[in-house]
Design a binder for these strands. Structure first.
Lengths: 72, 72
DNA sequence: TATAAAAGAGCAGTATAATGCACTATAAAG
DNA sequence: CTTTATAGTGCATTATACTGCTCTTTTATA
């Protein structure tokens, strides 16, 4: 996942859950300004920030070896 | 994946590939000091830093919905 | 045990992430 | 068009990630 895909996955998930940026900021403890910047494609969030957002959205950050073949 | 697991996955992968911190730092463009700090459990890397390390190690950073059931 | 390679830590400077506040832009509803 | 809710931006400050340099500690090998 590249940078923009990471952004997209968070943003899409937030929208699916019908949570506003403001609510997500509140719930996650991330500053609203930070979230806005992030979702508008600016900046370079820290792992901690990413995890706080992911947690609230029922998501998780992972680092894994590529080309994992999953038996579908 | 929590913070320490992220660290571990990177560190383990580096060791499996028998790459030194110095070599990984060179190859990824991340400062050696940064990598050392990261692997010793200190700090809070940015997404960009994580991705540079993951790339070189044939890994990827992803953010996904939890509880994905994979058919093993 | 001596030596060398790799990993970890202290210090200090620079770059930038995180933040709040105030303002603007956009979109939906009336 | 007006109102309201949500999203995005400019500016300034603070905290901290990133970095290099140097030194110490640990680990492996002769």
């Amino acid at each position: 996942m590249h940078y923009k895909e990471v952004i997209q996955s968070i943003k899409e998930r937030r929208e699916i859950l019908k949570v506003t940026q403001e609510a997500l900021a509140e719930l996650s403890g991330v500053g609203l300004r930070t979230l806005k910047q992030f979702e508008s494609g600016k900046g370079n969030p820290t792992l901690h920030t990413l995890q706080k957002l992911a947690d609230v959205l029922g998501m998780e950050v992972c680092v894994q070896v590529k080309n994992i073949i999953r038996n579908k």
